[in-house]
Design a protein around this nucleic acid. Structure first.
Lengths: 224, 224
DNA sequence: ATTCGGTTTGACCGAGCGGTCGAACTATAT
DNA sequence: ATATAGTTCGACCGCTCGGTCAAACCGAAT
């Protein structure tokens, strides 16, 4: 797996980070995730992150060259956590397996996002700020890692004849991603909000809708 | 038409703005549109806008109470320009008219966005920064105005039986908007890029794809 | 007891931010 | 010619930003 723009800086910082106490590292990264979730990467305040982490300014700058370096580290962390979700999910090997794997994928995604609302918000920020210039490199790479499984799934689906071939994978990817975001907005971030049954109902409605839309959008042209 | 959070400030500024020279007003607004397009509303620099407009700081603050006030004015301006596009487009009155009107809508949208790339970028920023808190009011209102026609079209479509009724209009709206954005990304902003025929081809491909996806997503469940 | 590399600290830096304000300018009425 | 109201101007304000740095601290080796 390529390491997109992560920690490309001076070697000295890599050495130092290895020696960094785990507890401190976690406090810093958690503070950063919260800040990025709340404000996005651009508007995030490095000062505020440092303050929230409880470390001193000097210490943080001792381990991380600058704001971008910390961003890269956090992006890597977020990607790792998300990718972990699909480690045990195999791509379909036959056409009639496709939609059940897709269902499982959507289910795992939505559960992960619901159980990790703050991380979810960061992922949301990644796809929103993706296009911009400054952190473009890291963000773009992170975005690619996040949609990696979906990409592979679409490619496999096309090979198996379960997914239309008249549109580029990238277009399908974008539309699916956009639809998923639009649909999941009212479910993610409202996890066990007082009423667990209500959430479960919302969740199941989302799954049905997402599955329905996926099939409609992706099914090969000759079938419709 | 409701005036969403626009120029709610002191009366004195309204009076002054009425007396403001048209040429100066346009220079300022155009500078602001460019800045907002490039950086978004949050990251936009009021100082930079003022500098670009050629006016002095004191003058601008004489006519606009603050940054938010100028943002509200620009939002209003952008909404007006976009809404102008549909003034001569009527909602369908029969089921078999629906898809031709939808086609016409998509065509006009994409033409407007292509011919006004900077304004398009601002509209893009509106929908991206929509969720956030600070300017939430104005941005949210502007967003509603921008998707107003699509909303009406969907509602009418449902009344005519051309659009599915099993999902809330708001969900359909979001998915359509997201799909449109995902699909149009490679065409908007690349208007007459050296090769006019190439762009025309891209445009026609977009129209076909958008229409296909719209039909797939919106068609009532019993038909599929 | 001293030295020394790794680590921690917070005062400090220049830049840019949104916003203020008193002085100067201008045009019209008297 | 003078008074008055509308307008223009840019120096200046307090604040936060990302980032620097000399001094202090600490624990292990000598």
């Amino acid at each position: 797996m390529v390491n997109y723009g992560n920690t490309e800086g001076e070697v000295i910082f890599i050495v130092r980070q290895e020696r960094l106490d785990d507890a401190k590292r976690e406090r810093l990264i958690e503070a950063a995730i919260e800040e990025f979730a709340e404000r996005g990467f651009d508007a995030a305040s490095y000062n505020r992150i440092i303050e929230k982490s409880g470390l001193s300014k000097g210490s943080v700058y001792y381990y991380f060259e600058n704001k971008d370096s910390l961003i890269a580290t956090v992006l890597d962390e977020v990607c790792k956590r998300f990718q972990e979700v699909f480690k045990s999910l195999d791509l379909p090997t036959a056409k009639d397996e496709y939609w059940s794997v897709a269902w499982e994928y959507h289910e795992r995604v939505i559960m992960f996002l619901s159980e990790n609302p703050v991380v979810a918000q960061v992922m949301y920020r990644i796809s929103k700020e993706d296009a911009r210039a400054a952190n473009g490199g890291s963000l773009c790479g992170a975005h690619r890692r996040l949609v990696g499984f979906m990409d592979d799934l679409l490619i496999r689906g096309r090979e198996l004849g379960a997914v239309r071939s008249d549109l580029p994978i990238e277009v399908l990817q974008r539309v699916m991603h956009a639809a998923g975001e639009a649909l999941s907005s009212e479910i993610v971030g409202a996890y066990p909000d007082t009423d667990k049954d209500l959430w479960r109902a919302k969740f199941e409605r989302f799954m049905v809708t997402m599955h329905d839309l996926s099939k409609r959008m992706l099914t090969p042209e000759e079938v419709v």
